[in-house]
């Protein structure tokens, strides 16, 4: 295999858009339909970087519900990066994402983590307040994204790629 590859785990409550973000990023597609992920699906895409070697992100899309118990299983092992996802229209999913971050950090202290607040296209229905995100930004990178339209998606993955490749 050419260049470097890094394992990234998608973590977050069910229905926040993990699977959608991966398909937007990997194949530039989106489906309105919600299909619960069970277990794990592995996908990958190479990220080109300015003035540095490309890095391949191997994305582990883990089931929303089993994510917490997945911490004990082998899904998370070997990950260099954590991509936490919350749904802006459901405040509770942000708390869930932060919980997952804490627990996974204990398991993977060296992994880089970023937080995506997804469904930016529904911003009029967001329960997450901008001030909350401004505060969170002090402790980890936060991106507002829309898997539906693609906004913020490239940038978020590129940022994580840069972090895990370093």
């Amino acid at each position: 295999m050419s260049g470097q590859a890094r394992k990234i785990c998608m973590l977050g409550d069910f229905g926040v858009g993990k699977t959608s973000l991966v398909s937007r990023f990997v194949s530039n597609t989106f489906s309105e339909r919600y299909l619960t992920t069970v277990g794990v699906k592995v996908d990958s895409r190479e990220v080109l970087r300015d003035g540095a070697d490309p890095v391949k992100l191997v994305l582990w899309d883990i089931a929303g519900r089993s994510a917490l118990d997945a911490l004990n299983t082998s899904y998370l092992r070997g990950a260099s990066g954590l991509l936490l996802v919350a749904d802006g229209t459901r405040e509770a999913t942000l708390r869930a994402a932060l919980d997952l971050l804490m627990q996974s950090r204990a398991l993977l202290p060296k992994a880089d983590a970023i937080l995506l607040i997804n469904k930016l296209d529904l911003v009029d229905r967001w329960e997450v307040a901008p001030a909350t995100l401004a505060e969170l930004r002090e402790s980890l990178p936060v991106y507002e994204t829309s898997a539906r339209f693609g906004d913020g998606v490239e940038r978020a993955f590129a940022d994580l790629a840069g972090r895990v490749a370093a």
Binding site: L120, V123, W126, P130, A134, R137
Partner: peptide, 16 residues
């Protein structure tokens, strides 16, 4: 078009 202007406002406020 596509995303509402509210997203601009939100993203700016979310950056402080």
């Amino acid at each position: 078009p596509r995303l509402s202007g509210n997203t601009v406002v939100f993203r700016l406020r979310a950056q402080g």
